[in-house]
Amino acid sequence: MFKKSNFIERSLTGALSFIKGSIFAEGYASRIGFLQSLDPRIKAATFLLFLLQILFTKNILVLLYLYALCLMLAQVSRIDLLFFLKRTWVFIPLFSLFIAIPALFSIFTPGDPLVSFSLIGHKLTITHQGLSGAELFVTRVITSVSFVVLLSITTKHFELLKVLRIFKIPQVFVMTLGMCYRYIYLFAEIIEDTYLAIKSRVGTLVHYKRGQHLVAWNIAYLWHRSYQLNEEVYKAMLSRGYAGEPAVLTDFRFKPKDLVWFIFAAIMFTAMRKYG
């Protein structure tokens, strides 16, 4: 399992490092920047307006304008643009492969032919309508993904969870989400430690089949451990007075700056709805 460049080892360490790096890194959320200084409730509400606009509009110029606004917001919030672009464009090939590329062709989007060519004996035609549809789709995806990523990296995760409450998500779901977040890290650590413990005992030369057995056994162990933890955490909650519906304290503070930003976003939303 642990030979150099082994698939399982690479997947395991890669997944763990991705989880820790992307979910738990709060470096950007702690920086002093424009979006970080806004009340998270206002920030989330205005981003929701932008997302709705992205969803409704069929005008690529409006989408490009919103994308430019998003990049500008990232810039004034002291986000490294290269990091931000990498983080957002990573989703594009996935969507393009399954949706945007097929939509280019006349089979899925009939219309005026733009280019025709043969592939393995089949004649394929890209249409004008297909191309503009695919462009619109990719721009819509990248713009909405960018706004969501920007919101998540400029807001501390616990503030995001609290914000969910203003969108009337039941507290029990919000709390469950918070716990998932909390315990994913614990489990990532358990996986890492288990992996190191195995490696220290078996060395590096293990047949891949044996490696698969070890991984399967670890998945079973982790499942059992999570079940145990579930019971224990519930007891810890009961012990501190939990009686079915958790109570929370919201301590956000609304500032004049938040009002200015909200008015700006609302005007933009209205204008784009009217003229876009």
Binding site: H157, L229, E232, M237, R240, Y242, P246, V248
Partner: peptide, 27 residues
């Protein structure tokens, strides 16, 4: 009040502040 053996069980909220105030809020 019980302090559990494993603090990872007792600290289930996203932040220390929320964990500490969890009890009095519920009560």
């Amino acid at each position: 009040g019980l302090v559990f053996q494993n603090p990872d069980i007792q600290l289930f909220c996203p932040t220390v502040r929320e964990d500490i105030i969890f009890g009095p809020l519920q009560l």
